[in-house]
Design a binder for these strands. Structure first.
Lengths: 130, 130
DNA sequence: GTTGACTCTTACATTGATGTCAGGGTTTAT
DNA sequence: ATAAACCCTGACATCAATGTAAGAGTCAAC
């Protein structure tokens, strides 16, 4: 099949499929006219790439084990587990950082609201005294 | 003071201070020789910029309220609270997304470990039968 | 044989704060 | 007066996947 059809079948843009090729993730043969020709298996390949990209892995990381996981179960690809571990550590670091920022934001918001309340209380008191 | 001194006092690189200026966050006067001249108050300005950057706000957003918060308490700067709210929403979206990815990763890791365990159990059984 | 729908390659844009470098002026201390 | 240390502007690089567009070739249908 041609690249446009592969794009439709997978929901991935033509641009992205060509990019995956430039990163060594997929290698279509070329027809006499220069068009890329994909086997039906390419659909699974692209779906697999999508899956790993959605897990936050980079194309470079995916390139390291894609061949293996297309032929075997993940459990038999030794490269996968260490990547998952380090990705998980990344994510946990990001979660810590985001939660820290979140707490800081919430504290600042709370203190703004408190100051505003105090101001309106003052105002009310003044009004009451008048 | 000159830019190098301001950089040392604040721990912010000269490059970044110039960048803040290009974004309209700080406006030193120029000496006859073209050098930037900062008042002592610039230290507080840069520290304040740092604080908001660390909260994840962009220089563009900071530009919208920096003048106000340098003169008043945050609670009196109407622009601040809406920004905090939308930033908090951003962060909560990111937390949801990261947690989703984390769960997916952990599931995949668990199933890999399980398959590997099953494999080694099989192996052991075979050995025992020999 | 012409038009429309594909395809090709190449290349720039996106995002945003920061690093770094080049080429050139200024100041300060020796 | 010279060297070291500073300052200036301008510009490119970073990260990474994707969008977009130009200019050109191919193919199918009418």
């Amino acid at each position: 099949m041609k690249i446009g059809e592969l794009a439709k079948l997978t929901g991935v843009s033509v641009r992205s499929i060509r990019y995956y090729e430039s990163q060594g993730l997929i290698s279509p043969i070329r027809q006499a006219n220069g068009y890329r020709e994909y086997s039906p298996l390419a659909v699974e390949t692209v779906e697999t790439i999508k899956l790993y990209l959605n897990l936050g892995l980079s194309t470079e990381q995916i390139a390291g084990f894609l061949h293996c996981v297309l032929k075997n179960k993940e459990a038999f690809c030794a490269e996968v587990m260490p990547l998952y571990r380090s990705k998980l550590e990344d994510i946990e670091r990001q979660l810590v950082e985001l939660n820290q920022i979140k707490r800081n934001l919430e504290e600042r918001m709370a203190s703004i609201l408190q100051e505003q309340n105090e101001s309106s209380l003052e105002a009310c008191t003044l009004e009451n005294l008048e």
